[in-house]
Simulated scan of single mutants.
Amino acid sequence: MYEKLTAIIPEEDVMVDEPLRNHTYTHLGGMADFLVTPETYEQVQQIVKLANRETIAFTLLGKGSNLIVKDGGIRGIVMNLKRLKEITTDETTLVAQSGARIIDASRAALKHNLSGLEFSCGIPGSVGGALYMNAGAYGGEIKDVLVSTVVVDRDGELRTLTAEELDLDYRTSNIPDNDYIVLEATFGLKTGEHKDIKAVMDDLTHKRETKQPLEYPSCGSVFKRPPGFFAGKLIQDSHLQGKQIGGAQVSWKHAGFIVNVNEATASEYINLIHFVQDTVKEKFDVNLEREVRIIGEDLI
Rank of each mutant, 00 (worst) to 15 (best):
E86Q: 06
H239S: 15
G62C: 01
K70C: 03
G64A: 03
G30V: 12
K224A: 13
T186W: 00
I258G: 07
P10D: 02
C121S: 14
K143L: 11
K49N: 03
H206P: 03
L161I: 08
K70Q: 10
R208D: 07
Q249W: 01
R159C: 10
V261H: 01
A264V: 09
L234M: 04
V14N: 01
K85S: 08
D203G: 13
A7Q: 07
Y269P: 10
S238I: 10
I295F: 04
K49A: 03
L5Q: 05
E289N: 04
I245Y: 02
I235E: 12
D169R: 13
S238L: 14
R293S: 09
I68Q: 06
D144H: 10
L117I: 03
D237Q: 11
T265K: 04
Y138N: 08
S120I: 04
D169H: 11
T162H: 01
K111T: 01
Y269Q: 09
E215P: 04
G188T: 08
D285G: 07
Q277G: 10
M1W: 14
Y25S: 15
T55F: 12
G129K: 01
K82V: 15
L5N: 03
T93I: 01
V48I: 09
A266D: 11
D71F: 06
R75T: 13
A108H: 07
K195E: 07
I181N: 04
E263Y: 07
I123E: 04
L94I: 05
T172E: 14
A57W: 10
F58C: 11
T59C: 10
L183I: 04
T162Y: 08
K70Y: 10
L166S: 08
R293I: 04
V44L: 00
V147Q: 09
K233G: 02
A137H: 02
L94A: 07
G220T: 09
G73N: 15
T26C: 07
N271K: 15
A100K: 07
E184H: 14
V200S: 04
I258L: 14
I74Q: 09
L5V: 06
V145R: 15
D17I: 12
E3K: 14
T6D: 06
I245T: 13
I273W: 00
R293N: 14
F230H: 07
L28K: 05
I9K: 05
E193L: 07
A100D: 06
A108Q: 14
E42F: 06
R21M: 04
V286G: 14
G29T: 11
I295K: 07
M31S: 02
A248E: 09
H27G: 00
T172G: 11
V250P: 12
T55K: 10
G139P: 01
G129R: 03
R21T: 00
G228C: 00
S126V: 06
H274I: 06
K143Y: 13
R83E: 03
T92V: 11
G76V: 08
I9F: 05
G232L: 12
K82N: 15
I123G: 02
L240P: 14
S238C: 09
E215I: 10
K207Y: 13
V259M: 01
I9Y: 03
G29I: 06
D71L: 05
R225D: 08
E118R: 11
H239D: 05
E165F: 05
E54Q: 05
E157I: 12
L61A: 01
L67W: 00
K143M: 15
Q277L: 15
